[in-house]
Design a protein around this nucleic acid. Structure first.
Length: 504
RNA sequence: GCGAGCGUAGCCAAGUGGUUAAGGCAGUGGGUUGUGGUCCCACCACUCGCGGGUUCGAUUCCCGUCGUUCGCCCCA
């Protein structure tokens, strides 16, 4: 391609017929699986207001969005579908339906990432959302549905990683941490496992500078144990009793607020250090459920935390065998955090073992705040997951279980031998089509010899020859390409011959 | 976002600092009458991703860029 304007944009692909068919076939199988669990299909727009994704999606995803302003509207190509489905739920008659509302979707999503095998800037997500159901029965259904879907496709070498983000959420919520810092910590869970802790601490220092610790340390000590209001009142009182020349009450308030800010920031460090300690220990907890659960329980106990999230996981693990889920596939990972910040409870990923780095086939979890955050009438718990269709295709390919694509897409080629037969050949074609046959006409005026070559090359099983003799007698010649036999017959009989011989 | 390899036709490729850039597959047109995939003939890259530099001369050497693949990061 010499002209760059007619090349595909980087990271997107033309999907040619064989691949297209394969992917549709995969999607069809997943659909029927989702439907068997009572999920109904929904389609939502590819384009959305950027705002939809800004609140709850997490920095990482937001920075990778196709985000643009068009006619004074800030729009984006959707980077995922959960937020859109939640939006559609809130905005439509779905909100009036009895809960839970079970939906599934399939469609392209867009992320501006560096393209690689199995990672594209446009790819296809297919997934489900169950809106209005909380608890381990609902969570287990999600995980089971994801696994059964993969089982149905014939995939074997996959592994389910289960986690629960509520443990860390709960821990962070008990501390008076700045929200921004809390969110950052949440997003750094997996980072902690790979990067050295010192590096992470440095990064946090940068976000949250300690800012004149020495100057305020005595004040801090003095005000320790007081509530924010009491502390502020104390500062004001101090200011009143100094002889500093301050104009008006306003200035005093400013000074008090600024001091309070400094003190609070100074107090952040021990908090986030403690959080990092906890996170580090949490992140260690990964492996087989029976090995990890006891240590998890112990960790929570040492922090005097209630083990609700853990209990949920145990319930889920107890339920899964009833769905015939192979328990050896399942791993726990308390360091799992996932990129989307809307998750609130059970989260999970499914990885394929043979796919190298781009091995994640599925991701999902519970997002109990999203509907409310986006403006839903009620606080509605929900959960869902999403597959990457292209990756599933690659995984099936690597397991050698891709279904065979049928070669021929056409049952018969009709060859008119001269212009005089054009109309008659079309009539023949139309009749054959009305009988459910897939028929192409030789429209280029090629002679019979060339047409037979063409049919042979395209593996078209039958050629219908229409010449003057056939037209006048109102018959056709039907030739079986495999047997090289041919007969001159009325059309009705030709159809029967083709049906019979095609089944052989 | 970081690190590395690759880039000759629709596909697979050989090739060299110097006149017309092998070959194969696919495709197109033929091999005269209404019968075939094998066979035969012809056609199919004014140019080696793109731009610049070195040189008398570059597809070949150098730089940049774009694309692709691989390893990190992150994700589906």
């Amino acid at each position: 391609m010499r002209n760059p304007k007619v090349e595909t944009v980087r990271g997107v692909n033309d999907v040619l017929p064989p691949t297209y068919r394969l992917q549709k076939q995969i999607e069809n199988q997943l659909s029927s699986c989702f439907q068997s669990f009572g999920y109904r299909p929904i389609d939502v727009p590819v384009i959305e207001y950027t705002e939809l994704f800004l609140r709850k999606s997490g920095e990482e995803l937001i920075s990778r969005m196709y985000d643009f302003t068009y006619h004074n509207r800030r729009l984006c190509l959707r980077p995922e579908l959960t937020a859109s489905v939640a939006r559609a739920y809130i905005q439509t008659t779905l909100q009036g339906e009895p809960l839970p509302v079970r939906l599934y979707y399939s469609g392209p999503v867009f992320r501006y990432e560096k393209p690689q095998r199995g990672r594209y800037r446009q790819f296809t997500q297919m997934g489900v959302e169950a809106i209005g159901a909380a608890g381990s029965m609902a969570d287990a259904e999600m995980i089971a549905l994801a696994c059964q879907s993969l089982d149905k496709l014939g995939l074997k070498d996959y592994r389910v990683v289960l986690g629960n983000i509520s443990l860390l959420n709960q821990f962070l919520r008990t501390m008076p941490l700045e929200r921004r810092l809390g969110n950052f910590l949440l997003s750094q869970m997996e980072e902690l496992r790979k990067v050295r802790r010192a590096a992470l601490e440095a990064a946090i220092e940068e976000i949250c500078p300690p800012d004149n610790l020495v100057e305020t340390s005595r004040l801090q000590h003095l005000l320790q144990g007081l509530s924010e209001e009491e502390a502020k009142a104390t500062i004001l009182e101090l200011l009143e009793n100094t002889n500093v020349n301050l104009v008006g009450n306003r200035q005093k308030m400013d000074i008090a607020n600024s001091l309070m800010g400094k003190i609070q920031r100074a107090e952040q460090k021990p908090l986030w250090l403690k959080a990092l300690d906890f996170m580090e220990q949490l992140a260690q907890l990964q492996g087989k459920p029976q090995e990890v659960l006891p240590s998890a329980r112990q960790l929570l106990a040492s922090y005097h935390m209630d083990s609700g999230g853990l209990g949920e996981l145990e319930e889920i693990l107890a339920i899964l065998p009833s769905y015939n889920i192979d328990s050896t596939r399942i791993r726990l990972d308390f360091g799992l955090s996932r990129g989307l910040q809307y998750y609130t409870g059970t989260i999970f990923e499914i990885h394929h073992e043979t796919l190298g780095q781009e091995r994640q086939l599925c991701g999902g979890g519970r997002y109990d705040d999203l509907v409310k955050t986006l403006g839903g009438n009620n606080d509605i718990p929900a959960s869902g997951f999403s597959f990457g269709i292209e990756r599933i295709r690659l995984a099936m390919e690597s397991e050698g279980i891709l279904p065979v694509v049928e070669e021929s897409t056409v049952d018969a080629l009709i060859v008119p031998l001269s212009a005089a037969e054009h109309c008659y050949s079309i009539e023949v074609g139309e009749k054959l089509r009305s009988k459910g046959l897939r028929v192409v006409l030789e429209v280029r005026g090629k002679n019979l010899s060339t047409s037979l070559k063409y049919a042979a090359k395209q593996t078209i099983p039958f050629v219908i020859v229409v010449g003057e003799a056939e037209r006048l007698a109102n018959v056709v010649v039907v030739k079986n390409m495999a047997t090289r036999q041919q007969q001159q017959l009325p059309l009705e009989e030709a159809v029967m011959v083709m049906r019979r011989e095609n089944d052989e």
